[in-house]
Simulated scan of single mutants.
Amino acid sequence: MQDDTSGREVLRFAPSPNGWLHLGHAYSALFAFETAKRLGGRLLLRIEDIDVGRCREEYVEGIYEDLAWLGIEWEEPARRQSEHFAEYEAVLKRLRDMELVYPCFATRKEIQDAILASGIPLQAWPSDPDGAPLYPGIYKDMPRERLNELMWEGRSYAWRLDIEKAKAKAESINGGPITFYEEGTSTRGDTGILEIKPELFGDVVIARKDVPTSYHLAVTADDAFQGVTLITRGQDLFPATYIHRILQILLGYPEPRYHHHGLIRDETGRRLSKSAKDMGLRELRAQGRTPADIRRMVGL
């Protein structure tokens, strides 16, 4: 499934069509595009639309329009993750066969109640790098027979990666500690060969009953399937590399290099986001802004 890269660097820009692109996306897309040009490489566009409830076709068309307006060129066709659920399900089955994932039926309320029952205040309970409370392991050690019964009852569940077992297995395959090569993060000060810290995520969700994948599983598989050699993305995704590297080793995927670039922020220092309804490129374009204006606004 991996593309023939002919020795050229392969980069990708991978937006989710759950809102209009804003300046932060413009920076990330232009950064990947300019890096690919400088290296004489290829740029792929991937539409990460596994969240079928929030993704909309008009946003997909908006991505194409905004990128073309910015002068960004990519190889056709763009990969649509929603068209490849069967492939992700096959990858998930490999992890299930290794007994590294387990079904978790916990609701958010159950997780909150379990934390409260521990005697530790919610605000003192550790959070993962995405800000969610670490999973307290409610279903982790439940007998397999009982888990199968709950699945047959039709209850909703998520597949969680047993991070302790997965890390041990990956280190055994790797012959030692797992690392990755980081080319960027100048504001973090983290460059060179870095060791992963997956325990910061706990037993992370990698798929669900109704959608056989998650961000972590889909992007790891896609980067391998598409032969991506250099992953450029925002610093907010730096910790996700810890999970992706474990999955790469477990699944026998090649190791790409990484460059986590800075984020575009507003005057208060807050990073731009779709959820905050930050001004989109289409609105800036409607105001008469030019691609050159956008480049100046993001510092490129």
Rank of each mutant, 00 (worst) to 15 (best):
Ser82Ile: 04
Val204Phe: 11
Leu134Cys: 01
Leu122Glu: 15
Gln81Asp: 10
Tyr64Asn: 11
Lys169Tyr: 05
Ala117Gln: 09
Ser273Ile: 00
Leu100Phe: 00
Gly7Val: 11
Glu87Met: 08
Ala224His: 15
Asp128His: 08
Ile196Tyr: 05
Asp236Arg: 01
Lys109Trp: 13
Glu9Val: 06
Thr268Gln: 14
Phe105Arg: 11
Leu70Lys: 11
Pro177Ile: 01
Asp66Thr: 08
Pro133Leu: 03
Arg208Thr: 12
Gln2Glu: 15
Pro126Ile: 07
Tyr88Pro: 05
Gln248Trp: 04
Val205His: 02
Glu61His: 13
Gln123Lys: 14
Leu43Trp: 06
Ala90Tyr: 01
Glu73Tyr: 00
Ala26Cys: 08
Ser82His: 07
His216Glu: 07
Leu44Asn: 07
Thr241Met: 05
Gly288Ile: 02
Glu58Cys: 02
Glu87Gly: 14
Asp210Thr: 15
Val298Gln: 04
Val91Asp: 03
Asp162Arg: 07
Ala221Thr: 14
Leu250Met: 10
Lys277Ile: 00
His259Lys: 14
Ser172Met: 12
Asp3Asn: 14
Phe201Leu: 11
Phe105Glu: 03
Ile264Tyr: 07
Ile246Ser: 09
Gly227His: 10
Gly234Asn: 04
Asp49Lys: 08
Ile115Gln: 09
Leu150Ala: 08
Lys274Ile: 03
Gln248Arg: 06
Ile249Met: 03
Ala26Phe: 04
Gly252Tyr: 11
Leu150Cys: 08
Val204Asp: 03
Glu89Tyr: 05
Leu300Val: 10
Leu230Asn: 05
Asp97Glu: 15
Gly299Ser: 05
His244Thr: 02
Ile196Asn: 05
Glu76Val: 01
Gly19Lys: 09
Thr232Ser: 04
Arg296Phe: 03
Gln2Trp: 15
Met279Ile: 15
Thr220Phe: 08
Val10Ile: 11
Arg79Lys: 06
Tyr258Arg: 03
Glu99Gly: 14
Asp223Glu: 15
Ala132Met: 13
Trp125Asn: 02
Gly24Val: 02
Met1Phe: 09
Gln287Thr: 05
Asp223Cys: 08
Gly53Phe: 12
Leu92Met: 14
Gly24Cys: 06
Trp152Ile: 14
Asn148Cys: 11
Leu200Gly: 04
Lys167Ile: 02
Ser186His: 11
Arg144Trp: 12
Ile178Arg: 02
Phe31Gln: 02
Ile206Pro: 00
Asp3Glu: 15
Thr187Gly: 09
Trp69Thr: 10
Pro256Thr: 13
Leu21His: 00
Ile294Ser: 01
Glu99Asp: 15
Ala114Lys: 04
Lys140Val: 07
Asp190Tyr: 13
Gly299Lys: 12
Val205Arg: 00
Arg233Phe: 09
Arg233Leu: 01
Gly53Gln: 14
Tyr215His: 06
Glu9Met: 10
Glu99Ser: 12
Asp162Tyr: 00
Val298Gly: 05
Leu70Asp: 09
Thr187Leu: 14
Glu83Asn: 12
Glu153Pro: 00
Trp69His: 06
Leu21Gln: 09
Phe85Thr: 03
His84Phe: 09
Gln123Thr: 13
Ser118Gly: 15
Glu83Val: 01
Thr179Met: 06
Asp278Lys: 03
Asp113Pro: 03
Asp236Pro: 01
Gly176Met: 10
Gly119Glu: 13
Thr107Val: 02
Phe180Gly: 09
Thr290Lys: 05
Ile193Gly: 04
Glu153Ile: 00
Phe225Cys: 00
Lys167Thr: 09
Gly41Cys: 13
Leu263Met: 15
Gly184Val: 08
Tyr258Glu: 02
His22Leu: 04
Ala286Cys: 06
Asp4Arg: 13
